[in-house]
Amino acid sequence: MKLDPRQFSQEAYGALESLSQQLDKKYHKKASALVQGLPAYISTWGLHRLSGDAKSFIGKTSEDTKYKGTVYYCFLESLHKFSGADFQPRDEKSLIFNSRMPLRDYLALNHLALRFAKEWSFWAASLLGEAENN
């Protein structure tokens, strides 16, 4: 499968534009930092952990952590749409226990996710502002 690098940019840009509209402005800079850390996060922990953490952050009562779940889910949903892979973005089990997805496909999806995360990271400052860590 050959991918046009412009597709990565178009998908990442569109997803981040949508994310910026979903998030309260006060979380944009924190979300930018989170997005810029996605490549390292995925290379260390993988997509199944990202999905599990998204679920955990969305379930927390503090608004100061829910934005993290929103960012992670937006990334996973965008990746799902972009890749057409057989997983459910809001169900981490579909990445861990998916017997329909051979290991080779899962590894390819993780590789694609890393490349996609790098493109997200590139556009984060433009669409969400300069990163702010707390």
Rank of each mutant, 00 (worst) to 15 (best):
I58T: 12
L19P: 00
A131S: 13
N110A: 14
K29V: 02
S62H: 13
I96A: 04
F75I: 07
K2M: 05
H80C: 12
L34Y: 02
K66I: 13
P102F: 03
T61A: 12
R104Q: 14
C74G: 15
F82D: 04
Q88D: 11
P89T: 10
D24M: 09
Y13G: 01
P39G: 07
T44D: 12
L112A: 12
S9G: 06
D4E: 11
S83G: 08
Q7H: 09
Q36S: 07
S78W: 01
A113Y: 10
D4C: 07
F8I: 05
D4V: 03
K29G: 01
A108T: 12
G52R: 15
A113E: 09
L38S: 02
L114M: 15
R100G: 01
L95C: 03
F87D: 00
K30F: 13
S18I: 04
E17F: 07
L128Q: 02
F116G: 03
A124N: 08
E77W: 08
L50I: 10
H80Q: 15
D4R: 11
N98D: 00
S43M: 14
L128P: 01
K26R: 15
G69F: 04
A31S: 15
L19S: 01
E17L: 09
K60T: 14
E119R: 14
Y72S: 09
K2L: 08
H80I: 01
F8N: 01
M1N: 04
S32E: 02
D105S: 10
A108Q: 15
G46A: 12
H28K: 09
L34G: 00
I96K: 07
K68T: 09
N110R: 14
P5K: 08
F82M: 12
T44H: 11
S99V: 10
I58D: 04
G129L: 06
W120T: 06
S20N: 04
D86Y: 02
I58E: 10
A125V: 09
L23T: 04
G84V: 11
F75H: 02
P5R: 07
F57W: 11
A31V: 05
S32Y: 03
S83D: 06
C74I: 06
R100T: 11
E63C: 03
W123Y: 15
K93C: 01
W123C: 07
D91V: 04
K81C: 06
K55D: 13
V35Y: 04
Y72W: 10
S51L: 03
F87S: 00
Q88C: 03
R115C: 11
S99T: 12
G52S: 15
